[in-house]
Design a binder for these strands. Structure first.
Length: 828
RNA sequence: GCCGAGGUGGCGGAACUGGCAUACGCGUCGGUCUCAAAAACCGAUUUCCUCACGGAUAUGAGGGUUCAACUCCCUCCCUCGGCACCA
């Protein structure tokens, strides 16, 4: 621990002073109507929790650096902040502690604002958006109504994910490994009537348009593509023997149709009951099916459940060869995917193979592996690869990849089936049986049925005096004054919907509200929004790769379709920062490994915490927090402070670069190299760690210069270096930078200044050191003029002492010269 | 199983388009200052051999391409993240 009696510099006086300055001068406020070059820098708005730790800070610090840097590059930077303020934690805390969610949420918001301020992270606070306030959720409800009007919000009864601990339903995206994303309880299935948004309507566009998002991290796009899960195949209609109905199956491997030896149905398939009625062992079959149906109510994907099945006693006819194929019911078929029925080809599908082995069903090879011929009797696993068609009538001999297309054509021609596309993506379940959310703006009228609340009656206010203990039923049901209302159509008595919306609905459009946050006749102003969006830079955690980012893209596309926005992708650049971990684990109260910024800021100042957070490693990767490392950042700032103290005034800045000593040239070169490096690191990506290390090198060089040169800190080049140094540091450590800027004669805010420029001419050296390799191994170095000719360089190298020794009179076979880089001499 | 990211000193990590591996920081060791300590400053620090000069050796493992490989190719191992009975 550094002894804290004496501070390396008076950060405790500096930091509050400049925080107040920025706010008083409204440095971060922007007029969205008047601007020249806009830059929308957005950080994912947080859920208002009681206290932030240094891990949370990373997101805001990165965003603040970007905003300040862009400001110095001359942009009108919009950097707003808000709060994703509805949600379960506040409600759960209220149940425990008896404080109303609204009270605790608004308190937490104040705490967070104070913490952000302490970090020196600044926003245009005039635009704050708080999703739990009626002026905001009015428009969340409005979006719901628009979706409803377009048929994209609908209610249906379905098996849905149910968290027994949160006592509410969950969207598919909120179930992680069969557990509740929030509380880790095992999720069960319940047959309930719920509200859905038809995100599947946009499945293909959501997938296709990932291609437009060239500035998004590859992994996020991959995750979304996996989640949407598109597969192309064929739906085949099988005639059922002795029935008028057909059985429709989806397959991506229509090339294996001749190898189908059984059909498998999901236990919930609507035809199952009809099929088994009147068969020989009806009672036994029915019992087996019933058992599978019960089991399927717990999430089957949870564990690798043993495949079970039962023969229905019925058959379909294979359209290609009129063979009879038995119909089975099995637990490995999911009703939610495809048609809930498959043609099983054991020879070429792992699952079908496993099932066929267990129930001794026939296995027929129809695609042969040219390298290793298959044998249906001896094969130990399904062959799922490509190959040559066999036992497939007129298709035999074709390559299986080609047969896929040919057979699909044949099927469409003969009307046996048609091409079809399936997605894993499910509609978004958005109703919740909880209190702390935006009420669903729907009224049920005995005469008129389901009626959306008209725009003029929005918002549907969330009543405050409600008993909101979770019972599994919506707490709003008990609020009689809320429930009973009049039908907007017939004015007769009617009842309100008592569910609230998933908080991910709130957060799927907030970035649009920031542009015109106080409008009360529209959710946002379309003209202005079209000017400011898409967001230039979005910054947030990878945990939102699917949920929030997919939902926001969906809602944006919908708003685009109803002509509310001109763009259909909300975020142009996306940056996902890694987590900061401690003792090998994510920081959490329960693990007791939370690093609080409060003590660190008290001991070393906010600039130190910022600098270390940025220096810790590449920001997109997880990083381990080290208190010692933070001390190093503090030491560095002390070192900078003392360096700047040597200089009384930088004004007027000397741009005479007359001093031609070796030291001066070296410092000048380092300075311009550093400006270049830092600029490129900030423009080309988020390479804060390497930008900072470059600045550290410049500081080292400046100290070196002071020790070695005659003029020391009085020289023009030294002043110039210090002036640029302060500017280069300013986005990272804004408080100390402003203070040093002022102390050396700068006026106003440093963030109103222009970012330093580098001059390539100062970077190139007159003399460079070229490494000499003998047979690829470094053996010596030589100092030569930068613009030396290859011939002269060759001569110089060959006459260099060490090199001569290494060559030792042997024949030089070849010399490879990479200009300005290296020379490699090849000898036997 | 499939997809994605990654594996470099005691630690966090650098290395452009194949061209001096280990920048910068932390830690450790030594020194300066001091009565002493802390802070600060200066120096050393891949590993091994050598008093030293110097040499050998190293980017998960093994092969390959090349004058030259952390970087490209092949085989394999490990870590992390996502998806997963998706027909």
């Amino acid at each position: 621990m550094i002894e804290m009696d004496e501070k390396l510099y008076p950060f405790d006086k500096i930091e509050p002073k400049w925080q107040k300055f920025w706010r008083d001068k409204k440095l971060f406020n922007v007029d969205t109507k008047n601007y020249t070059d806009k830059y929308y820098c957005l950080m994912m708005f947080p859920y208002p929790s009681a206290a932030l730790h240094v891990g949370h800070g990373r997101n805001y610090i990165i965003g603040d650096v970007v905003a300040r840097y862009k400001m110095m590059r001359g942009f009108n930077v919009l950097t707003p902040m808000g709060f994703d303020a509805f949600g379960l934690p506040a409600e759960n805390a209220a149940i425990k502690g008896g404080i109303h969610p609204k009270t605790s949420t608004l308190n937490n918001i104040n705490t967070m604002k104070r913490q952000l301020n302490q970090w020196g992270v600044e926003y245009d606070w005039d635009r704050v958006v708080i999703s739990c306030l009626p002026e905001y959720y009015k428009w969340t409800q409005w979006i719901f109504v628009k979706l409803y009007e377009k048929g994209l919000a609908y209610k249906k009864k379905a098996f849905v994910n149910w968290c027994p601990s949160c006592k509410t339903v969950l969207a598919n995206e909120q179930v992680v490994n069969g557990k509740c994303e929030r509380c880790d309880s095992v999720v069960t299935q319940k047959d309930l009537e719920q509200w859905f948004f038809k995100i599947t309507h946009y499945a293909d566009r959501l997938l296709q348009d990932l291609g437009k998002l060239t500035e998004w991290p590859e992994r996020v796009k991959t995750m979304q593509a996996n989640w949407i899960g598109k597969s192309e195949g064929v739906e085949i209609d099988f005639k059922i023997e002795n029935f008028s109905e057909v059985l429709r199956c989806f397959t991506t491997r229509v090339d294996t149709i001749y190898g189908a030896t059984f059909i498998a149905l999901a236990p919930e398939h609507p035809l199952v009951d009809k099929l088994i009625k009147g068969v020989k062992d009806e009672a036994a079959v029915s019992k087996a099916v019933g058992k599978m149906r019960d089991e399927s109510k717990i999430d089957r994907s949870q564990a690798n459940v043993e495949k079970e099945g039962v023969f229905t006693g019925r058959f379909v006819i294979n359209p290609v060869n009129s063979k009879k194929i038995p119909i089975w019911v099995s637990n490995y078929i999911l009703m939610e995917y495809g048609t809930g029925a498959i043609m099983a080809v054991p020879a070429h599908d792992e699952r079908d193979f496993e099932f066929a082995k267990k129930y001794k069903l026939p296995i027929e090879v129809v695609i042969d592996d040219p390298k290793n011929h298959l044998n249906a009797v001896t094969m130990k696993e399904a062959y799922v690869g490509e190959g040559v068609m066999v036992n497939s009538d007129k298709f035999s001999g074709l390559k299986s990849v080609d047969a896929v297309k040919k057979i699909a054509d044949y099927f469409e021609d003969k009307k046996f089936g048609k091409r079809s596309v399936q997605y894993k993506l499910r509609d978004w379940l958005i109703s919740r049986q909880r209190y702390w959310g935006a009420p669903i703006p729907i009224i049920y009228c005995p005469k008129c049925g389901t009626v959306a609340v008209p725009d003029k009656d929005l918002p549907v206010l969330l009543p405050e005096n409600v008993e909101f203990r979770p019972t599994g039923e919506s707490p709003l049901k008990a609020a009689k004054n809320f429930v009973s209302t009049k039908c907007p159509k017939c004015n007769g008595p009617a009842a309100r919907d008592t569910d609230t919306m998933d908080t991910f609905v709130d957060s799927s459009w907030y970035f649009l509200r920031y542009i015109t946050p106080h409008l009360n006749d529209k959710p946002f102003d379309t003209d202005l929004v079209n000017k400011w969006l898409p967001v230039d830079q979005y910054i947030g955690g990878i945990e939102h790769a699917i949920l929030h980012l997919l939902y926001s893209r969906f809602i944006t596309k919908f708003l685009h379709d109803i002509k509310m926005t001109a763009f259909d992708e909300p975020f142009k650049n996306l940056f996902t920062q890694g987590m900061i971990i401690k003792d090998g684990a994510k920081m959490s109260k329960s693990k007791g490994n939370v690093v609080s910024p409060d003590k660190l800021i008290a001991d070393y100042g906010a600039d130190t915490v910022r600098l270390y957070t940025l220096f810790i490693g590449p920001p997109e990767k997880d990083a381990e927090w080290s208190d010692r490392g933070a001390e190093g950042a503090y030491r560095f700032l002390g070192r900078v402070w003392r360096l700047v103290e040597k200089v009384h005034s930088l004004q007027p800045a000397g741009n005479n670069n007359k001093e031609a000593t070796k030291e001066a040239e070296s410092l000048r070169r380092k300075l311009h190299q550093t400006i270049k490096k830092v600029t490129e690191d900030l423009d080309g990506g988020f390479h804060f760690n390497t930008a900072i290390s470059a600045i550290m090198e410049l500081v080292n060089e400046a100290y070196d210069y002071m020790a070695k040169s005659k003029n020391g800190s009085g020289s023009e080049i030294f002043k110039e270096a210090v002036k640029s140094l302060i500017m280069l540091l300013s986005p990272f450590v804004p408080h100390i930078a402003e203070e040093m800027w002022q102390a050396t004669g700068g006026s106003g805010s440093i963030f109103k200044c222009k970012w330093p420029q580098y001059n390539e001419a100062f970077i190139t050296e007159k003399v460079i050191t070229i490494p000499i390799q003998i047979n690829g191994k470094l053996r010596s170095r030589i100092e030569v003029d930068t613009d030396i000719s290859e011939e002269a360089l060759k001569m110089a190298v060959l006459s260099e002492d060490k090199t001569k020794n290494w060559i030792g009179g042997k024949e030089v076979k070849k010399i490879i010269i990479i200009p300005k880089k290296l020379v490699n001499v090849i000898i036997p």
